[in-house]
Structure formats: C-alpha cells, structure tokens
Design a binder for these strands. Structure first.
Length: 958
RNA sequence: GGGCGGGUAGCUCAGCUGGGAGAGCAUCGGCCUUACAAGCCGAGGGUCGCAGGUUCGAGCCCUGUUCCGCCCACCA
C-alpha cells in the first residue's frame, strides 16, 4: 500500500486509449429498428481549416452529449465530415500558387486549378479530423462525409433542380455584392461591416440651360458619380420643384442627366434633399432606377477597376485612384463645394477584407419567401427549440428580413450549377435534360445589359443526371454554366445529404430528425435557418429537435480568440505540449511572440472549457504568460490547470487508495450497515440525478461542478479519509463494506465524469472493472465508453444517514476550525480529547461507527459523546447546529485568542439572528408570507439563538 | 438607428420559478499526517453597475440610467 504510484501523465495514456476505442469500434452506429436512436451531425469544419479553441469547445460539447447518450443505452451516432468551403479553400490554394509560381488562377485555368485544390484537399483535408481525435471526439469516422462527395453532390443537384422547377430558383440580372479580389458575387451573409473614416463630398451639378444654377448632392463614394443617371428629389420639396424634368451637367463625363422626382429615396430633411442616382452601384439607387426606368450604367470591371463606360481618363483606374482623381478634377472645375469627415460602416469580404462593390450582374437566386414560411412555422410551433431560448428571436428576425439569396459564385471550387446553355439557339428557349421539353425562360437583363443570357438546359428533376453534350434543338455543342453554388447551398443540406437523402435510406429513417445541433450564434441565420428550411421542405420535419448555441471563446481582454489575431491557441499544442510562434495583432505594431505550452492533456482542456459552458455565455480564458530569459513565454491557463489537478486527484485516489485497498475483497452480500457507507450511496444517488438533470438541460458547466465536488469533497476529502481506519482495521466485514463502497463509488463517479473527461476515466475504468470482477461485484462491462450510465435507484436513498453524517462532518469542521484558529496548537499536534454534547440520540449512536474515523480526521486521541457532557475548564469551544464541541487544552489554549475567536463567532451569529428577528417582528411578514417560510424562519431563529447562547456560555466560562 | 447578452469577492464565473450571498483561481496563516505539496487543514475578502418602483421581503420582477460585448441595418 505504501508503494509509490505512477504519476498522472495524460500524454502517455490518451493516444493509446483512443486507438482502443477505434479498434473496438466503439464509435460505430448502424440503424437498428426498434432501438432509440440518438444522433448529432457535426457542423463540418472547413477542409483547409486547422483546429482552434472554438472548434475544441464546439466539439467537446457534442462529444459530451454523444457519450452521455451512448451510456444511456441509445443507439448513438455522431456523424462527422468536412466542408469544401468554396471561397476559403480556393483562396488558400490561389495564394500558394501565387507564392510558389507567381501565377494567378487565370494563368493556370479552371481544370488545372481544380486539380490543385483536390490535391491540396487530399493532403491537408485529413488534418482537422486527426485534430478532433486528439480532443477525444467519438465520431463514427467510417462515415466521414465531404460536401463534394458524389452522394452529397447528388443531393445538391436534386435540390437545385427541384427548386428550379418550382420556380424557387431563378436567374436574373441584379445588383449583387461583388468582391473584386475574388471576382465573385457574395450573399449578404458573407459580408462584414467595418467602420471606415470616410468623408462626405458635396458636389455641384450645374443646370444644362443655366450653369449659374445647380443642384448640390453629397456622396461618400465620389467616383460613382461617373455612373450617375439622374438626380432625385422629393416631389414635395419646394426648393427643387421647378427643376424636376430639367437636365443637369454630369461633371467630368460630358453627359447630362435629368432631375427626377421620387417619393421614396430622397428625404428633404437630410442634406440638400437631392440625391445622386447611381443605379448600377448602389442598392437604393438601383431600386429607384427600377421604379423610374432610369438607365443603369456599369462603371466597373470584374476586378473592380473602372470600365470602358467611363471617360478614357479614368478607365482602368482602381477605386481609390479613381476617387482621388475624380475629387481632384472636381476641385479643379470648382464643383466640389465641401468636404466633411464622416465615419461610416462599409461592407468588406468576410474572406479577404476587400471592400465590396455593389455590382450589376447575372446571377442565380433562391426565392426565399415560401421557404422562409416553413422555417418560421418550425420556430413558432416549437418544432425547433433553442438553448438559450432567446436565440429564437434572432432566428425569426432574420427570417423576417432576408432578401432573395444569391447562390451563384464566380469561383471554380464548388458544386457547378447543373445547367447548360446553347449559344447557337434562341436565348429565350430552354431545353431540359431529357432533351424533349422546351420551356421559356424569362430574360431579366437590365437596361444596360450584362453578360449574354443563354437559355438554360436543365436536367429533369429526379431523372438520372446527365451531362448533356449537344443541344437537342440544333445539335450544336452546349456549354455548362461556369458558376458554382454558394457553399451554404450545400451546407444547408448537410443533415439530409449525410444521411443519404434523396434516397430513402435506413439511416434517414433511423436518425432523422437528429437530436441536437451544437453551434455558435454567428451562423444561426446563415446555416441553422436554412437547414430548417430544407428539412421542412424535403423531409417535412426540421433536421434537429434542439439547437444548442454555445458562447464564443474570448481572450483575457475579452477579444474574440483567433489565431490570425495572435491571441488564440492551437488546442493540439495545449493538449500535447509544445511551442508556437504567434503574431499578436492586438497591439500596434504587432508583436511576434514565442510561446511554450505544457501538456495539459485533452481531459484537462475539455474540463477547462466545458466547466464554463453555459448556453449562450461567452467563455473568457484567462492566460498568464511568464517571460523566460530568452524573451519567449511560458503560457499557463488557470482553467486548464484546474482540470489537470482534478485529473491528478482522480488518478491518485484510484491508484493510491481505492485499488490497492480493494485487493482481496470478497464482496459482502446485502446493504452496508454503516452510516458512512449509506451516506456515500445517498450522495451518489443524488449526484447522478443532478448531473443527469444538468446534462439533459445542456447545462454542462453545472454538471461539471456537481461531479467535481462530489468527487473531491464528498468522496476524497470526507468519505475516504473517514473510512481509512476501517480499511486498516482487522474486522473483515467492516473492511469489506468499506472496500466495496469505495469501489462502487469510484465506478459511479468515473461514469459521471466520463462524458467530460473520457480518457482518464476509460483508463482507470479498465483497472476498476478488473478489481470488481475479482471481488465478485456486478459486471459493468469492459469499456466505460459503452458501459451504462449509473442508476440512482441502485444506490437507494437514506436521508437519515445523510443527516447524521452531515452533522458529524459539521463537528469535524468545528474542531478543525479550533485547530486552525489557535496558533498555539501546532497543526500536527494530536489533541488529547474531544467532548461532544448533543441531544440527538441518532447522532450519539452514529459516533459508535465513526469514532475512529473522526479521531483520525481531526487528529485527536479520544472522544466522549453524550447528552450530559459539560464544558471542562480551560478548553476551546465550538457549536454546531446539533452539538456543543469542546477541546480540553490544558495549558495550551491561548485565552485571549480563544476569547477573540468566540467573540467573532458570536458577532457573526448575532448579525444573522438580528436579521431573522427583524423579519419575524414584521407584522406584514407574519401575515403575508407563506406559512412554510414563516415556520422555517422561526426554526432558524431558535437555532441561531441557541447557538449564540451556547457560544456566550463558553465565552463566559473562559 | 434597431435587437440581444452581460456588469455579483483581486481575477474568471455560478446563483433555477423573489425568502439564510457561492465556486475555482489568487491572497494570508499552519502542515512533507502511511493516495495526492498538481496535496492537506484553516482564514480573510462582496452597499450583487447606478437611481427609482412593486412586494411583508429584491442579486433575482418592473421602469429609467450608465458602461462593456455581440448581432442586424439602405443612412445620399
């Protein structure tokens, strides 16, 4: 028993445990009719991505729920996969191409670029999966899906065509958000708004027939004036009434434009009341242009430079150059009448941070209204429940305001639009994929045109997919639409497509709808709402019952943690230990910092983030950095330290006490006669109930805190310490019950902790299960991951034992308090004698069983307990709710110290008593408060005044 | 501009439907007591952002206000 146990070293055990789970197929799930299925579909990380703390949190939460479900005996599937992440992935490969070969995608061409991206995917696509394994995720990896797999692509095509044939997908020329860097359209949801220190430029447009008069307009983007086709004023605006219908000189262009009246856009109260109209490059102006049938001029090329539609002097200029030039030219012509500073929000590309230009082009759209209705219904009817519930509002608000969704992207990596055109035929005629149905398409070209619109040839819904080669009408060659679909178009199908839809698969029948979606709040609109739409539309049910929205991981200053910002961490390095070099961009200038991490282990990292996981609440990770001599830093994260210390505690008590002490156990029959054992079982049963309750309600942090205290305080600090004399004694039955209780408690506790700390619990469980078998205790299976969740019923309930042992515990703390507060008693000095007086017969009887334990616990030599004890002279005193406790200390007790200690206690108790008395003296309280509350307060007053009396008596006796 | 979340111990956070202010870390004091110094025992520390209101009673409910964060928004 005295042999040193091996120290707890997570990095040594975790890899091995994980490979055992994989080898034994513990994560596997196949549909089993008749069984309750539990399923989570992973929010697919980007193929190019590397694991960050947000992933660690997100996936740890899912793993907890999955492991909990599995232990509760459900047929549990966590379905993993990765997302092709169109723009993101293509950007990464394009950047590499530029850095290594100095080429752009246009240099190498579509086919070659796609080849390179696939190669990249094969090479690095598996990385994030491996990282998830490090965290301990128990996904069914054999089912790993990729959004561009054949099956998933088929789901995408099917949905596209069904929506197309219903008229919910259409093509049109519209003003879209254009990223000039990526040269593609983006949806509204892919923009990030950043505040820019801009200006208002006030420009004067003279009247054609009276240059002394003019209209002053203001703009934040002066270069767009080159595309103006009108100036609008409000019809009721007296200032401009006589100008409506007359023409203005559009400076710098040689064009003239009309003054028009519009009821909606101009606001007479704002600025000059006159608004320049650039229908080709501003959403409001575009709407106005449509209303008034104004010409639309596209002044930009796809890469954001000024196009041939502007005067030659400006052609080919980039936006900023153009802006400078236009302003300078206006100044020269005396038409810039004012400039003022104006900070405002400007849309940027969420990937490359380029400024987004509203741009007129041909794109594919989803008509959202009917789909929105479906999603709104699912939210309103409670078919989808949000945790925290407040997030439902965000979901509904987005549904209320979302415009039609631009789904085409002018990039190459993604699902290509399954539509072919015949360049030779009449562009107003379309032919579908079977080659025999002719349908008309609407030509939605704007007045200024766009790209040439061809009639699409669309494969028929649900017919075998074809890649038509020739036009069924003229037999000429066809070309496929060059665009690909927005990544979210395939993401929205993820829960359907990964389960085999559109086929009616056994998976779909068994696992759909899934149980819960775990995600962060920033993609509620982007992803969650759209998945609900697709689920409702194509399966008649939302794809998940619950949506658990977790918080964001923040750094010690409250900033969002991200690697690129230089304040994030690679979770793998925190788990395995190592070093990393980060560039901290929170400071100006950025600072490069080399950091060293100790190996916390996955269990500690998981515990660290999960113990703070409350639905919706952000998690601020405090980090301490200690500088080394060479300028690098040792990083410590207190939250993870706690996890590791807890792991160590669990390890130590298992290998240091429970297992060695359980050797030779032959399990006794029947319930234990010992109060202490029954108390432990009682606490375990209550613990199981509360942990289960918290997990059921997604309160993982609360669950952590319950098992933490149950394990550390109730089990380690109290039960194990109290039971030691019985373990060391020579009464076989007393020993056997203690051994058995310890084993049972540990078995139960490991299981309660397993969802949060899977590795260490699995490792210890192996040995605990062996010990149980040797002792003849009921079999619990070989692996904790597949062993059943503990049943509170099997431990019963014993409030009486709980009450008595709790009273003894209070007495023990009272004695330790005396010891701690009296500097004259050395901590390791044995107290000669304890005297306890109590009227509680159960308590007196209980001491028979707990005497030895208590004496050891408080390090005392002897103990007397009875209702008749009196205070001996020269002793330290304490009172608990149920007893007086005296510690005779001949010559040891420092009278002044003891007087002060008692006085402090009396003062504290007196304060509480006063408050209760005040309450009870209040007539309103007696009359209006519920009876049980009043009774409770009365009892409390009794208790407090008894306590204070007994404390006074002790003080007087000094 | 609109919406949401949050201000509780030095730090990070719990406090469920209103009824005795809690945890972890940090701090201070004492202990290498036969699992664990990554430990054990003890202690100190809070006008629960501010101001009103409802109530017998408010950290919790209502109103206003301030600060922080996030999301949404077409502000020429």
């Amino acid at each position: 028993m005295t042999s040193k146990t091996e120290p707890y070293d997570p990095s040594r055990i975790e890899r091995e445990i994980y490979s055992i789970w994989e080898r034994e197929g513990c994560f596997r799930s196949v549909p089993a009719p008749g069984r309750r299925h539990y399923c989570i579909v992973i929010p697919p990380p980007n193929v190019t991505g590397a694991l960050h703390m947000g992933h660690a949190l997100n996936n740890s939460i899912q793993d907890v729920l999955i492991r909990y479900g599995r232990m509760r005996g459900m047929n549990t599937l966590w379905l993993p996969g990765v997302d092709h992440a169109g723009v993101a992935t293509q950007s990464v490969v394009e950047r590499t191409l530029w850095e290594t070969e100095g080429k752009t995608r246009y240099d190498v061409g579509r086919e070659r670029l796609l080849e390179m991206i696939w190669q990249w995917k094969e090479r690095f696509g598996g990385r994030i999966v491996e990282q998830l394994k490090t965290v301990g995720c128990s996904c069914d990896w054999e089912r790993t899906r990729f959004t561009m797999d054949e099956g998933l692509s088929r789901a995408v095509r099917t949905v596209f065509l069904r929506l197309f044939h219903e008229g919910l997908v259409y093509r049109g020329t519209r003003l879209v958000n254009w990223c000039p860097n990526h040269r593609t359209a983006l949806s509204n949801d892919e923009l990030v708004y950043k505040e820019i220190q801009g200006h208002y430029w006030h420009i004067r447009y003279p009247l054609v027939d009276d240059p002394s008069r003019g209209v002053v307009v203001a703009t934040t983007r002066p270069e767009t004036m080159l595309g103006d086709t009108a100036v609008a004023v409000h019809p009721s605006d007296e200032r401009y009434r006589d100008l409506v219908g007359r023409r203005l000189v559009l400076p710098l262009t040689g064009r003239t434009i009309p003054v028009v009246a519009d009821e909606i856009l101009p606001d007479p109260a704002k600025g000059t009341g006159a608004v320049k109209i650039t229908p080709g490059h501003d959403p409001n102006d575009y709407a106005c242009g449509l209303r008034l049938c104004l010409p639309m001029i596209n002044i930009l090329t796809e890469d954001g430079k000024l196009a041939g539609s502007v005067p030659p002097a400006y052609q080919g200029l980039a936006r900023d150059e153009a802006r400078e030039r236009v302003v300078a030219d206006l100044v020269r012509e005396g038409l810039l009448v004012g400039t003022e500073d104006h900070p405002h929000e400007v849309a940027h590309c969420y990937r490359c941070s380029s400024v987004i230009e509203p741009f007129l082009s041909d794109q594919w759209f989803v008509h959202m209204e009917p789909l929105v209705e479906l999603a709104r219904g699912a939210g309103a009817d409670g078919l989808v429940r949000f945790y925290p519930p407040g997030r439902l509002k965000q979901y509904m608000d987005w549904l209320d305001t979302t415009p039609d969704w631009c789904i085409s992207r002018q990039i190459w990596w993604g699902h290509r639009i399954p539509v072919w055109y015949c360049p030779a035929c009449d562009p107003s005629v379309g032919v579908d994929g079977r080659g025999d149905i002719v349908r008309l398409t609407e030509d939605r070209r704007g007045p200024e045109g766009g790209r040439k619109v061809f009639a699409p040839i669309v494969p028929e819904v649900d017919a075998p997919f074809i890649d038509p080669a020739t036009c069924p009408v003229c037999r000429g060659p066809l070309i496929q639409d060059p665009d690909v679909l927005d990544t979210w178009f395939s993401s929205q199908l993820w829960p359907l497509s990964t389960l085999g839809w559109p086929d009616r698969t056994a998976d779909l029948a068994a696992y759909y709808p899934t149980d819960v979606l775990v995600t962060a709040r920033d993609i509620i609109a982007l992803w969650v709402a759209r998945m609900v739409m697709m689920g409702m539309k194509f399966q008649g049910a939302p794809p998940f019952r619950d949506v658990y929205i977790h918080g964001t991981i923040l750094d010690e200053r409250g900033d969002i943690m991200s690697k690129s910002r230089g304040n994030g961490f690679d979770p793998v390095k925190l788990i395995q230990g190592g070093e990393d070099t980060l560039t901290d961009r929170r400071t100006d200038p950025p600072v490069e910092r080399r950091e060293h991490y100790k190996a916390y282990g996955a269990d500690a990292v998981r515990y660290g983030v999960l113990s703070m996981a409350t639905a919706g609440q952000d998690i601020r990770l405090v980090v301490t950095r200690n500088e080394r001599e060479d300028g690098s830093f040792d990083v410590e994260i207190p939250r993870f330290e706690e996890g590791k210390r807890f792991g160590n505690k669990v390890w130590q008590v298992t290998y240091g006490v429970v297992l060695p002490q359980a050797e030779g156990l032959e399990s006794p029959d029947g319930p234990s006669p010992y109060l202490l054992d029954r108390y432990m079982y009682h606490r375990l049963a209550r613990g199981i109930e509360t942990v289960s309750g918290h997990l059921d309600g997604y309160s993982i942090g609360d669950a952590c805190s319950v098992f933490y205290h149950l394990f550390w305080d109730d089990f380690c600090s109290w039960y194990v310490e109290m039971v030691k004399p019985r373990l060391w004694g020579d009464e076989p039955l007393a020993r056997a019950h203690a051994q058995k209780t310890m084993l049972e408690a540990l078995t139960c506790l490991l299981r309660l902790m397993h969802p949060v700390m899977p590795f260490i619990t699995e490792r210890l469980f192996t040995d605990v299960a062996d010990a149980r078998r040797a002792a003849g205790l009921p079999d619990v299976g070989r692996r904790i991951i597949t062993s059943p969740w503990p049943d509170p019923g099997s431990f019963g309930s014993d409030p009486q034992a709980d009450r008595i042992v709790t009273a003894v515990r209070a007495i023990a703390s009272a004695v330790n308090n005396i010891r701690g507060e009296n500097p004259s008693i050395r901590e390791n000095q044995k107290l000669p004698r304890l005297i306890v007086r109590t009227d509680d017969a159960g308590l007196v009887a209980g001491f028979d069983q707990m005497r030895d334990g208590l004496l050891r616990f408080v390090n005392a030599a002897s103990l007397v307990v009875s209702p008749d004890e009196t205070r001996p002279g020269s002793s330290a005193a304490a009172v608990t709710a149920d007893a007086d406790v005296w510690v005779p200390l001949e010559g040891l007790v420092d009278v002044e110290q003891e007087r002060a200690r008692l006085a402090k206690s009396i003062a504290a108790t007196g304060k509480k008593l006063e408050a209760v008395e005040r309450k009870l003296a209040n007539q309103g309280f007696i009359e209006k408060a519920p009876l049980d509350i009043v009774e409770k307060e009365r009892a409390r007053m009794q208790e407090l005044s008894s306590t204070i009396e007994r404390l006074r008596a002790s003080l007087d006796a000094l």
